[in-house]
Design a protein around this nucleic acid. Structure first.
Lengths: 226, 226
DNA sequence: ATCGATTTTAATCCCGCTTTAATGCCCGCC
DNA sequence: GGCGGGCATTAAAGCGGGATTAAAATCGAT
């Protein structure tokens, strides 16, 4: 598993890293809350170990931020012994479990296993939508093709996600309109067409891969190959 | 779920009713085929349990009638053991599954669950319309015959879908005009004829399969075999 | 409040779907 | 046999849907 550790005490962080690596996990350690949060957003971690007592930004805040951005990674809090108030706060902020310091390493391993099992069962929404050589990360809200990262605006992303969740199906403008813009949007303008054009420019123009968004005249648009 | 039971043997009916009610379903029992059919039309059932051996009207007939009236409720037939002929007839009449008497109650429950799941998920609406060896996929908006994909324009697709949803019925030009083009289209031109010709070229010409779109002089067009 | 980015509107161009219309064919009827 | 009605077939005209572009309006951050 790929694990992110956010822990300001360098020794403790190193200790955890070493121990987890012995269990064949890949571990990144950040001592700074903001840097850690950034990493959580940019990379695709399977688990986050989060110390609540951090300099600068509070661990609870990091947790709340990640959940607000709908990052569903399991979060295991590390707290001082008997910090009942912190524990309650942390769980309310969206953490999945906690562990009081100091702890036995075997207990940490046990909780990590339990958590990842629990999460992988419950929350198995596909994080990365893939079609042909195009990928869309629903966490980072970015696409990529041929290793190139593609930055999208909100509407572009929503439209691309809709197309990718319905590959092969012809989607009518009415359906697209409702899904991306919300009910009763059609005011005789061609907004959808313009956005399809934007998307094509971003995910097709400049790439050697084939055309993916196809127009079906009089019917709508499809995401398909060939 | 709201379940309709049509079963002439009073004891069997009562037995089923009691058992289903223990599983928190709401059950109506009719011992008469005609009365049962009437109830099916008037009320909104989630499932129909239909005995094939009924006094007066045949269970198969009830089934066929309901399907002819486009009542899409899942129908589970109850048949005598080894009544293979009945089973085939029943399924052809539009039933979704069958259960041979006598049966274990747990099997009945299992089949009811499977059926309701299948219907609610899949049945959304039939995605692929099939007639003879011709298929029309309403998602991809393409037809296929003998494994060959056939690309259609918007009007061609609308016309073909109309014909396939009314196989066997003769459709007047007025009706076609209204369904495909919208009200009051007829302005003395022969657009419909031209499109029927386009369709014939695409789905009949070049295929070994038989003719499917037939002209009824003075009346309109039908999709049928023979 | 200001500036940049995003979203929406609007105008123009072009391809090919849609429609029209002319011709050919089959059949029944005078 | 000639004629006309109903449909099939074909080709050409027109028109509308969609691509593209740019400008206007709106949003959001500082």
């Amino acid at each position: 598993m790929k694990i992110l550790v956010i822990e300001d005490e360098v020794k403790v962080g190193a200790f955890i890293k070493r121990g987890l690596e012995e269990h064949h996990h890949q571990v990144d350690v950040y001592t700074d809350g903001m840097k850690g949060q950034q990493a959580a957003l940019e990379q695709d971690y399977d688990l986050i170990l989060l110390d609540l007592m951090l300099p600068g930004i509070n661990g609870t805040t990091v947790c709340r931020n990640l959940r607000a951005l709908e990052i569903p990674v399991p979060i295991l809090m590390l707290t001082a012994l008997n910090a009942t108030q912190d524990i309650v706060e942390g769980l309310n902020a969206g953490a999945d479990d906690y562990l009081a310091k100091p702890f036995h390493f075997s207990e940490l391993i046990a909780r990590i296993n339990a958590l990842s099992r629990r999460k992988s069962h419950f929350h198995q929404e596909q994080a990365v939508l893939t079609f042909a050589d195009l990928q869309l990360n629903t966490h980072t809200k970015t696409a990529s093709r041929e290793g190139q990262e593609i930055v999208l605006t909100a509407k572009e992303y929503a439209l691309l996600e809709l197309l990718l969740r319905n590959t092969g199906k012809v989607l009518s403008r009415a359906l697209i309109s409702e899904a991306v813009w919300g009910l009763e949007f059609d005011t005789g303008t061609n907004t959808i067409d313009v956005y399809v054009n934007y998307l094509r420019n971003k995910i097709e123009k400049g790439f050697t891969g084939e055309k993916l968004i196809h127009t079906v005249v009089g019917m709508g648009y499809v995401m398909k190959q060939k």
